[in-house]
Amino acid sequence: MLIKRPDPIPSSAITDEAIYRERRRFLGQFALGGGALLLPGLLAAQARAEARPPKLEGVVPGPFGSEESLTSYQDITSYNNFYEFGTDKGDPKKHAQLLRTRPWSVMVEGEVARPGPIDIEDILKLHPLEERIYRMRCVEAWSMVIPWVGFPLAALLKHAEPNSRARYVEFTTLHDPEQMPGQRDRRILPWPYVEGLRIDEAMHPLCILAVGLYGHELPNQNGAPLRLVVPWKYGFKSIKSIVRIRLLEAAPTTTWQQLSPREYGFYANVNPEVDHPRWSQRRERRIGELRRRDTLPFNGYAEEVAHLYQGMDPKTLF
């Protein structure tokens, strides 16, 4: 397994600048190619400084770094799929301030020796917080590179001591239409949002629970105070604002499977060979870039995770 140590300079210190230059480069390229009407500004860097949530203390560099240039904080926090706050990409940022992230606890239950609620403050003490720079590939064929702060999901699961019947892990998002106005409309999705992983996927060192972004606490629109990040699967698997983790013997039915079993499978591994019925998954648009780039199997994490699916028909792994 290839483990790259990321640069010890915290990403928050260098990135916006890098992105800015990256975008200027595209601007130049496009100007050379002759300009379309909208373009120069389409890619113009947004320099607006925004207030960020508090900085997280004691964050150490984690494994699985990426050398790619990071998506800007502005883009990561203003272009979100978080239907609990509305279906528009800009809605979560507008409405997520309604969410109260303290006090917060996560109920851990099911096939575990130590069931019960765990307070977010205790969760934060389970494991040192690490910076994990991951690619994030949305099922809608766009992607970002995000410097998460988090810790292995395995740390929380081990704390709860799964028993031998625990074969799947089910995650549930908060259900409270007062704080999550999107949940008032049940036609959007069958609330609450539910996701699941096989236990070996959940225990994989790439799989983390994130509590921060760019060295700061997670903004609400990105799934505060605690969300899953599974970088080799489409973004919708990385469930946000988790209140319950249940270990199960049988596979849970996830929200998207319930809504459209033909379009969304349980595994949802990033796979350029298997199209979404309504669009191609072969290429993706990296946010901040103009031309689409090729999508990689397992979102480029095949070396780390392909063995989990050996012997399974790749066509069933959508």
Binding site: P40, G41, A45, Q74
Partner: peptide, 19 residues
């Protein structure tokens, strides 16, 4: 408005989709 927003970065993170 669309052209103006486009020129001033007002179309968000994915301006092509927004347009």
């Amino acid at each position: 408005w669309l052209v103006w927003s486009g020129l001033h970065g007002g179309l968000g993170a994915n301006p092509i989709e927004a347009a």
